[in-house]
């Protein structure tokens, strides 16, 4: 098992290198550091000296990939690629274009992000599985039909509407929860309640309908018929047998969702003013702070790869037949 994990971690190195190269290409080859400097200083009426000074201050004055004026190893290390891209592997994010320490910001902002994403993820999983089982229990009846219609309807409504509507209804009209904001400590639940609930409801349509098809596939299998023939109640068949066996495809699908969580966190954190990584990224995008966006691309990929590995490990827990090797 440990061997497997180690091997998988080694596999992920070339992928991360690829990610690194792609981001390097996007951020430094499309536009030169000079362009970036000019953008930050304001495109018009910029002296070449000012551009040079800005590049010096932010470490963009080095050559891109190969430094001819240096000697030895530093021919490779004294370059933008090494300083800005390669150092990400050591989780050394450097400084943002506005001069802040990105690593420090990330460490501080990951907690609010986790505080909203974990309940949203787990709550969503529970709600979706429960709702899917509910639909399967009533399969073929009117209840099932209307539940599916409900799912399709939710799928067709943009998350933005859910957020805006919920903020208006529960925040402004009923004043049950604060519209947005965040505090640390236990009282943060008041601020988390609305985004988490909205996140779960907005994601319910597609996911629970998909779980329903997974469950329905299982329901028609032979072992289920056997279980029924033994005189088991429908509820025990569903929870004891079908659920357990449908868990594997569900787990696979859950990981596919994890990078989407990042997208979700972007919207929710910025709408609800939660100082997490998502709103950090949005602020960076709006300020055109490339250093932060670049770091977030790398960090996002790392999270994705780790999540992929985590799923494979949970497979063995969900299905003892699977041996990782």
């Amino acid at each position: 098992m440990i061997q497997y994990i180690i091997r998988r971690l080694f596999y992920s190195i070339p992928i991360l290198i690829g990610v690194n190269l792609i981001t390097f290409a996007i951020f430094f080859l499309v536009n030169s550091p000079d362009d970036v400097a000019r953008m930050h200083l304001g495109t018009k009426y910029v002296t070449p000296e000012a551009v040079e000074r800005w590049k010096q201050d932010h470490g963009y004055h080095l050559p891109l990939v190969y430094n001819q004026s240096a000697s030895g190893v530093s021919r490779v290390t004294e370059t933008i690629f090494y300083h800005k891209s390669f150092r990400l592997f050591l989780f050394d994010f450097g400084r943002s274009d506005s001069g802040r320490d990105i690593g420090h910001d990330v460490r501080q902002r990951m907690w609010p992000s986790l505080a909203i994403m974990i309940p949203m993820f787990l709550g969503g999983l529970i709600v979706n599985i429960a709702f899917a089982l509910f639909m399967v229990f009533f399969r073929g009846t009117k209840i099932d039909f209307y539940a599916v219609v409900f799912c399709v309807l939710i799928m067709s409504i943009s998350t933005l509407f859910f957020v805006i509507f919920a903020q208006y209804l529960f925040g402004k009209l009923f004043q049950m929860v604060p519209i947005s904001g965040f505090v640390s400590g236990w009282s943060m639940w008041k601020f988390l309640l609305l985004p988490v609930v909205v996140g779960i409801v907005a994601g319910m349509g597609g996911t629970s309908r998909w779980y329903r098809t997974l469950f329905l596939e299982e329901v028609n299998k032979d072992y289920v018929r056997t279980a029924r023939a033994k005189g088991m109640s429908e509820a025990r068949v569903l929870f004891g047998h079908v659920f357990r066996n449908a868990l594997i495809p569900i787990l696979t699908g859950t990981v596919v969702v994890i990078p989407m969580l990042f997208m979700g966190s972007l919207i929710f954190e910025s709408f609800f003013a939660i100082p997490g990584l998502g709103s950090y990224t949005i602020e960076a995008i709006q300020r055109q702070d490339f250093a932060i966006v670049r770091s977030m691309v790398f960090l996002g990929s790392v999270i994705y790869i780790v999540a992929l590995l985590a799923t494979d490990i949970t497979y063995t827990w969900a299905d003892p037949r699977i041996r990782l090797s």
Binding site: P14, I15, G18, V19, I22, T23, I26, F27, V30, N31, D35, V36, R38, M39, T43, P259, F262, M263, L266, T281, I285, Q288, F290, V293, R294, M296, V297, G300, S301, Y304, I305, L308
Partner: peptide, 28 residues
């Protein structure tokens, strides 16, 4: 390898990077 690498970058961030760069390019 190619598609694993691409799909491991969260889509929204890739879109964000590319569109930021496009903005800058169009400004130039």
């Amino acid at each position: 390898y190619f598609y694993t690498t691409l799909s491991s970058i969260p889509g929204v961030l890739l879109i964000a990077s590319a569109s930021l760069m496009l903005d800058l390019y169009m400004e130039q």
